[in-house]
C-alpha cells in the first residue's frame, strides 16, 4: 500500500534522511519511531509530497508521489506536527473546505463530515471557532481532517504530542479503530505508544532506518544478546575458537589482530566466563567492554528522552 524507495533528503551539505526504504502492507499500522531530530518529519513530508526528495521516491496505493502527485495525494490523509487548521474557521465549515479540496463527491460530503466529527469526538464543538478550542480538540480536528475523505493511506506525525494523558488515550483509540480499513504510518518518539498502537515498527536514527520488525521481536532481541569487545596483548591461534566454545557465547569474531567481538547470550555470568577465560589463556587481557548496538543506542536515547519529558 505504501512503498518507500530509498528516500534521501540533503539540505545544503547536511544529510537529513538517507536512503530510507519501507514497505507497509494494506491494513497495517506501522510505527515510525525515532528520537527527536532523527528525520521522521522530513521522511513523512517526502512521502506525502509536501517536500520533494533529493533522490528516491514513494508510492501511495500504486501512484508515484513524484510523477502522479494528484492521484497519490487523493489517496492520502496527513496530519502534520502542528494541526493544519485555520484558526478563524468554525470546525464544521473547516471540514467542509477540506472535503472540497480532497475532492469528496457532493453526495457523500455531509455524511463523511458527520462521520469524521463523530469518530474524533467533535460533536460538541462542531459549531465553534477552531482558534477558541483547547489544544486537544484542535489536534482532534487535525485528525478529523486527515481521515475525512476515507483515504487508503494515513500518515500521522506525532499525533499525541502535547496532549494530556486522557486525550492521548482517546486519540489512540481512534487510531486503533482505523486499523484494518486503513493503512497507517504513525511517527512518535514515545516507545509505549508504539507498543500500544502499532503492529510493526521501523526505527530511524540520524536519518537512517536502523531496524524494522515487530516490537516484541525487537525488544526480545535486544535484551537477549550483548556484544563484548575484548582486546588482548598477545594474540594466539585458537583464541577465537576458545571464546566461542564457552557456554553462553553465541559467536566470536576476530575484528583485528588481538581484538575480538563476542556475542553473548547469557548476560553477566557469560561475561564473567569470557573474562576468566581471557586471563587463564595467558594472552594478557587489556580491555573488555560492552558494545552498544546502534539499535540499542536508539532505544537508550528514546528512553532517556521520555524520562526527561516525564520529569519536566
Amino acid at each position: 500500500m505504501i512503498s518507500v524507495d530509498r528516500l534521501t533528503k540533503v539540505y545544503g551539505g547536511r544529510v537529513a534522511v538517507w536512503q530510507v526504504s519501507l514497505e507497509v502492507q494494506p491494513g497495517e499500522i506501522l510505527g515510525f519511531l525515532g528520537p527527536n531530530g532523527a528525520g521522521k518529519t522530513t521522511t513523512m513530508r517526502m512521502i506525502t509530497g509536501f517536500i520533494p526528495p533529493s533522490s528516491g521516491t514513494a508510492r501511495i496505493a500504486g501512484h508515484d508521489i513524484l510523477t502522479q502527485p494528484l492521484e497519490a495525494k487523493a489517496k492520502l490523509g496527513y496530519l502534520c506536527e502542528t494541526p493544519p487548521v485555520y484558526r478563524e474557521m468554525i470546525v464544521r465549515s473547516y471540514l467542509g473546505f477540506v472535503a472540497d479540496i480532497k475532492r469528496v463527491p457532493r453526495a457523500r460530503r455531509a455524511a463523511l463530515i458527520d462521520r469524521a466529527i463523530g469518530q474524533c469526538g467533535l460533536t460538541e464543538v462542531a459549531h465553534r471557532v477552531i482558534g477558541h478550542l483547547s489544544k486537544g480538540y484542535r489536534q482532534r480536528v487535525g485528525l478529523a481532517q486527515a481521515i475525512l475523505h476515507q483515504p487508503k493511506v494515513l500518515i500521522l506525525d506525532e499525533p499525541t504530542v502535547g496532549l494530556d494523558p486522557r486525550q492521548i488515550i482517546e486519540i489512540r483509540e481512534v487510531i486503533r479503530g482505523l486499523a484494518g480499513e486503513q493503512t497507517v504510518v504513525l511517527s512518535t518518539h514515545i516507545l509505549p505508544e508504539v507498543q500500544m498502537t502499532c503492529s510493526r515498527v521501523a526505527i530511524i536514527n540520524e536519518g537512517q532506518v536502523v531496524a524494522e520488525d515487530s516490537i516484541d521481536n525487537l525488544t526480545a532481541g535486544l535484551s537477549r544478546f550483548q556484544t563484548l569487545r575484548v582486546r588482548v596483548a598477545r594474540d594466539a591461534d585458537g583464541l577465537a575458537a576458545g571464546f566461542a566454545s564457552l557456554p553462553g557465547v553465541a559467536e566470536a569474531i576476530v575484528e583485528a589482530p588481538g581484538s575480538y567481538a563476542i556475542r553473548v547470550e547469557g548476560g553477566d555470568p557469560a561475561r564473567e566466563r569470557v573474562a576468566a577465560f581471557a586471563i587463564a589463556s595467558g594472552a594478557g587481557l587489556l580491555e573488555l567492554s560492552r558494545q552498544r548496538a546502534s539499535l540499542e543506542e536508539v532505544f537508550l536515547k528514546l528512553v532517556t528522552e521520555e524520562r526527561a519529558e516525564a520529569a519536566a
Binding site: F50, L76, Y78, C80, P84, R103
Partner: peptide, 14 residues
Amino acid sequence: KSGTAELLFTSPVT
C-alpha cells in the same frame, strides 16, 4: 506561518 500550507500542498490540488 500557520502550517496550513501542509494541508494544501498534500491535497490533490496543484
